[in-house]
């Protein structure tokens, strides 16, 4: 059974809940991608390569911007779903953002995202689950930070967002280490992931500026 998440973003209208479902071991990425290319209206999703998603908030930041731009008539791409893919990008190249963050023929970890609309009240968590279960050949997994932790390709993200690898802390005179205490460096890998998220969200927010 597909586990679907219904996410309501603070400040976005009640009419626009976000449905998100994650799959691994996906076998039919080429088919799914083809449906997007053909504009098949049954397949109005943001189909993301889950290995390019760092965290739940990474996705939500893109969703917030895409829905906000939709509400105020500022979409740069075909619809709110393609805009979610584009909003993950740090630059204005739409085609490149699809290649990098969107589903490709070789995608095996898929994140499917759909935005509910007042004009389509029949789109519910149940209807989305039912459709995805029949459309996606793969194993459903939960969409949460723990699951993403095992899926994300950090090297790819570092490349896409032009981030440097973890920098060795510059050596400081012993006296200064003493004054600054143990709090001065954010070191563990969980923390470096969060630091990465902070930078990525900033770069996404600045896109197009």
């Amino acid at each position: 059974m597909t586990s679907i998440q219904t996410l309501r973003l603070p400040h976005l209208p009640q009419e626009n809940p976000i449905f998100a479902a994650c799959f691994v071991g996906v076998q039919n990425a080429a088919f799914l991608r083809q449906q997007l290319l053909q504009g098949n209206s049954e397949y109005e999703y943001a189909f993301l390569d889950a290995t390019t998603i760092l965290s739940v908030n990474h996705l939500l930041a893109a969703v917030f911007r895409a829905v906000n731009d939709m509400l105020y008539g500022r979409l740069k791409s075909r619809n709110v779903h393609s805009e979610i893919v584009y909003c993950l990008s740090p630059n204005n190249n739409i085609a490149e953002s699809f290649r990098r963050f969107g589903i490709t023929e070789s995608t095996t970890a898929l994140l499917a995202v759909k935005v509910g609309m007042a004009s389509h009240p029949n789109i519910t968590a149940e209807s989305v689950v039912a459709h995805l279960n029949s459309a996606v050949q793969g194993q459903p997994v939960s969409f949460n930070n723990d699951e993403l932790q095992s899926l994300t390709d950090l090297d790819k993200l570092r490349k896409f967002y032009k981030l440097e690898g973890p920098k060795p802390q510059p050596k400081r005179p012993a006296r200064q280490i003493a004054t600054n205490g143990a709090q001065d460096s954010l070191e563990t890998s969980a923390e470096s992931r969060l630091e990465m998220e902070c930078t990525i969200l900033g770069l996404m927010a600045l896109r197009g500026s």
Partner: peptide, 29 residues
């Protein structure tokens, strides 16, 4: 600024009759 002010419901903005809420409203923010 928008959207931090309550956004007028899409259905009302387009002049159509209001649609039923899709899902039970979550606790107001």
């Amino acid at each position: 600024p928008p959207p931090f002010t309550p956004f007028p419901s899409t259905s009302n903005a387009s002049g159509e009759p209001p649609q039923p809420a899709l899902l039970p409203a979550s606790a107001p923010l």
